[in-house]
Every structure is written in C-alpha cells, then in structure tokens.
C-alpha cells in the first residue's frame, strides 16, 4: 500500500533521518518535509517546504497533497536552543495547528506519529524508578520545556479521542546518545571534566539514536496505536557514564547551582537547563517493555548507547569530522527533483 507521508521538522536531526529512511521504502510514494530551516542531510526525493514555525499553511498542504501519514518530529525538547517564546510557538502552537489540519473535514490523515520526550515524567525523589506509560509524574512541572510538552500531549490526547479512526502513536524518548546527535548531555560529556552535582549520583537511562529512528519507523510500519516509552535497557549511574566515556567528574555545589553553571554557559561550554539539573540530581528511568511487547527489538542498551557515543568521540578526536558537511541548495535540489534529464529509479528500472 503506497503511503503519502508528511514530516514536520525536516531540518531537525530526527526529521531528516526519518525522511532518509523512508526514501528507501518503495511503499512510500510521497514524502513532504516541513520546516523553518533547510534540511541538514542529503535527501533524494523528499520535497522540502519552508514554513513559519507554527505551521499556518499546514491545512492547505494536508488538503492539497492528501497525505495519509504525519510524522511530528518538530517538537523541541532541548530548552537551551531557543527562547521560551519560540519554543512555545513551535511546540504548542505548532502542534495545535498540525492537529487542526489533520482533523479538518475530509482529512485523509489516518496515521500520526508524535515524537515526545520522557521529560513529561519529570524528575523528582518521589518518582518510581521505572515510569510506565500510564504513570503520572510525581510533582508539578517546573521547567518551561516540560510544561510545553505536557500541553502538547494534551492536544495529542484530544486529537486521539476525537479521531478514533486515526492510528496515533506517541513515543516518549529518554535521553538520546549516539555517534552524531548533539544534546546538552553529550556536550557535558565532551568537557574535560564532566559536571555532576555533589552528593548525587543518579541512575541515567539512554537510548541510541539508531533505536530512536528504528522505533519511529517501527510504529510507522506496524501502526501500533498508543503511548510508548523508548529507552535502552538498564540504568547506569552518572559516574559510570563518565567512566565509559573515559572522563573524570567535577562536582558542582548542590545548593546555588546556578552560580556554578552560569559561567559554563557564558563560556559557551555547556548549558545545563533546570530540567537537566533535576535529572543530574534524581535521574529518571522509564519502562520500555510496552514497545518490546509490541514487537520492537532494541539494538542497544543504555550502556551500549554511551559506549557508541564514546567510540565516536575517540574517532572524532583523532580525525575530526570525517563526514563532509552537506549544504542545502534550493535550485540544485529542485532541478534534481523536477528536471526531465535526471534519470530516476523508476526510469532506470524501465
């Protein structure tokens, strides 16, 4: 069955990679990528549409292209990237417009995948050590990214209730590590001394970036509705994470931590957001067995993800960035996609 897929956040790490993987799938007929920024990786047949961050043109796109699948990977989970206002526009308003378009009369959308984060569970001493999908967070959200993601999930829930004919999968990812992705945690682990909060050595859970892509493709393929945690097996203490990467830790005072992290941020080394400091104190674990029971096989454990990151780090230290950087050039890409002189897969087979 040929599918027509719309990906939000094509310029993000995840959107681009999901598009790349879908391009290889002959069942996927059309891939449309929406973003405010240009794609970061080479794409063959995905069509890139530039939009404003809250997707006001979305209902027109959905109608005109008759997409049946939406992959929502545009959600911002790293609050250090932008202002609170911009994050609100992207996460909350963007999702609102997305679901408004998807639930409009005559909408052809039958499958929606949302990439959320385990941040919605928060991190506090009261937490269970393994959050299940139906578990409630123990405290009120006190960081803006957590609040915004909870609002997003509210829209997701409303959409799912109002549109029972749509297969909706909501994935909550734990901290991602891997060879390529850059997150505040990966930046912290690249410092000569890895910051920790004195007196705390919380258990961390990681998911390898390939498992993130794998799980997104899995739910797209299998169409399993519901909420799923995505995280590697096992939890490891922060000190051991640093040890696997081969670093020593430097304690920061448990009280007045803002004074310690302020200079780190100003020097552009690492920006430890409040939700990350809570994580460095109390940790967080999510139960990944629901997705496993649905049939997904993880390729990496938590420690395996850290190890893969450490290996990539060692290589990069020796040879620098070995992949040539890709720059999106609009006219070239358009020519490739639409010129009659370009022989496409279909023509070649003929």
């Amino acid at each position: 069955m040929a599918r027509r897929v719309l990906i939000t956040g094509l310029g993000t790490f995840w959107g681009g990679r999901v598009a790349q993987a879908l391009e290889a799938d002959p069942d996927v007929e059309v891939i449309i990528g929406l973003d405010t920024a240009e794609p970061q990786i080479r794409l063959e047949r995905t069509e890139y549409v530039r939009s404003d961050e809250n997707y006001s043109i979305l209902s027109r796109i959905v109608q005109a292209t008759a997409v049946d699948t939406i992959v929502h990977t545009f959600l911002v989970v790293d609050s250090t990237q932008m202002s609170s206002r911009a994050m609100h526009e992207i996460n909350v308003i963007g999702t609102m417009n997305l679901f408004a378009a998807a639930s409009a009369a005559g909408s052809t959308v039958r499958n929606v995948v949302v990439k959320s984060s385990a941040l919605v569970y928060g991190s506090s001493p009261k937490d269970p050590y393994w959050f299940r999908e139906d578990g409630r967070r123990a405290d009120l959200p006190h960081s803006r990214v957590e609040r915004s993601l909870l609002e997003v999930e509210g829209y997701v829930r409303d959409f799912a209730t109002d549109n029972p004919h749509v297969c909706l999968s909501l994935l909550r990812f734990s901290n991602v590590l891997g060879p390529d992705i850059v997150t505040p945690l990966s930046q912290a682990l690249q410092l000569p001394l890895v910051p920790k909060v004195a007196g705390y050595d919380p258990r961390f859970q990681f998911v390898h970036e390939d498992d993130v892509i794998g799980s997104l493709l899995f739910v797209l393929e299998q169409q399993v509705p519901g909420i799923f945690n995505v995280a590697g097996d096992g939890q490891i203490p922060w000190s051991e994470v640093a040890a696997i990467v081969g670093k020593r830790t430097i304690p920061m005072p448990p009280i007045g931590i803002g004074l310690a992290t302020g200079p780190l941020r100003r020097m552009g080394l690492v920006d430890l957001a409040p939700e990350l400091i809570a994580l460095l104190k109390y940790g967080r674990g999510v139960d990944n067995r629901r997705l496993k029971r649905a049939g997904f096989d993880y390729q990496h454990t938590s420690a395996g993800a850290v190890d893969a990151f450490a290996e990539a780090l060692r290589l990069r230290r020796m040879v620098g960035d070995h992949d040539p950087k890709y720059h999106y050039q609009e006219d070239v890409e358009r020519w490739f996609r639409h010129s009659p002189s370009v022989l496409r897969e279909v023509d070649r087979r003929r």
């Binding site: 004919h165 696997i244 029971r293 454990t301 420690a303």
Partner: peptide, 26 residues
C-alpha cells in the same frame, strides 16, 4: 483501523526472548 484512543492497550506477552545485547558496564 479500530483503535482505542490513547488508552494503553493490552499487548500479548513477549513471544521470544531476544538475543542479549552488548552491555559494556563498568
């Protein structure tokens, strides 16, 4: 496709025990 909204559905128990993954713990 009949789907229960976002209420967790009961899924069958894991049919096979997957291969143990490489777990480089220290």
């Amino acid at each position: 496709v009949a789907t229960a909204a976002l209420v967790p559905v009961q899924l069958p128990p894991m049919s096979k025990e997957p291969e143990p993954l490489d777990d480089p713990r220290r």
